[in-house]
Computed example of a mutant assay.
Amino acid sequence: MSGLRCVDVCAGAGGMALGLEQAGFDPVLLLDRKPVACDTLRRNRSAWRVLQTDLLDFAPSRHRDIYDVDLLSAGLPRVKAGAVAAPSGAAPELRLVEATVYLVHAVQPRALVIENVPGLVDAPDLEPMRDFIREELHHLGYRLLWFLLNAADFGVPQHRRQGFLVALKMPWFDAFRPPAPTVRESFSVGRALHRSMAAGGWPDATRWAGQAAGVAPTLVGGSESRGGADLGPTGTRRAWARMGVDGGTVADEVPGPDFRWAPEAGRQGMVRITTGQAALLQGFPEDWVFAGKKTARYRQIGHASPPPVARALGCAIRAAFVGPESSLDGYTPTL
């Protein structure tokens, strides 16, 4: 079997689709409601068919080529704490969960992936949502598995716990195993960003990289209605400060030869990361281009699903379809 096809909804900056492409899936349709995200997708993969529309308004009957695809993936907006735990008429994030499940009715993929916050898997207040998903998908002949993955276990230099639902039709469900970690040791921030930090001639790049010896805290994209780009709330900024990084903002460019790194002096003595460096911390390749101004770029990055995790998950699903030998050592992107 070859030429596996997938549909990716709420595609964002393309982290999920890119990882699935690397795992051997051909994205036949990507859907997102934000113009800037669709622009990002088109800039990086001109051959991908990108549709700008809200998932709640999507009419699959107008896109019949998506029927019977192998995989439907959805990196849905994060379900917020305190969201009403009932799909119909609830918070917007839960309505999108409901819409994804109803899309399965029409598309009938062999497999479904929904990625969200860790609470997707076991939060008590989301149990009604899980019950809804389970009942609907069981009715359609799917079996479900809920599990957590940490991006740091897949070579991403970031502590990022993700909640996943994977549903497959029989007999492929019995052959599926969640992906195992792909690295033995975590990839540190300093190792990931040393080269880019030194690119502007900053003489302290090596010394800084030695201090930034841990993985990054979870990047947070933030709300569209809240301020500019920063690396997260107070606790996250403290973790960045221990690496000598000012987490209160995002830089326009890497430090130059005259920058004096003195983190003991406070924020003005700390280095700042750029949106391109944030993308590296999210597992994107260096040549992945993000559309929009700085804040828009950073939000796309912060909300993205890390491609290395999506690749590992795609390889696990592919192995369930065609056998363990299907895990790929390389891939040929559609440019």
Rank of each mutant, 00 (worst) to 15 (best):
S196V: 12
T332C: 07
R33G: 04
R43W: 10
A106M: 00
S2C: 00
S305M: 15
M16F: 12
G244C: 05
Y331A: 01
G302F: 12
P306T: 06
R33F: 11
R143H: 13
R45V: 10
V97Y: 10
A91W: 01
P118R: 14
A81M: 10
H138L: 11
A304S: 15
T274I: 04
G15K: 10
Y331T: 00
V289N: 07
E253Q: 14
V104Q: 09
L112R: 06
A175G: 02
T334S: 14
L112V: 15
L76I: 15
R110W: 08
Q277F: 03
L120G: 03
D26C: 07
G163D: 05
E93H: 11
L56P: 03
L96G: 09
I133P: 03
Q211D: 05
L140F: 09
R299M: 09
S61P: 00
R260G: 00
G276F: 01
P263A: 02
K293R: 15
A241W: 11
Y298E: 01
R318E: 09
G323P: 07
P35Y: 02
L96K: 07
F164M: 12
G292H: 10
I273A: 04
P27L: 08
I114C: 06
F25T: 01
L94V: 15
G221W: 08
G19Y: 04
N150W: 01
E98M: 13
G269C: 08
P217A: 08
D57P: 00
F154K: 08
L56F: 02
L120H: 06
L30Q: 11
G323V: 05
Q211R: 15
L168I: 02
R297I: 03
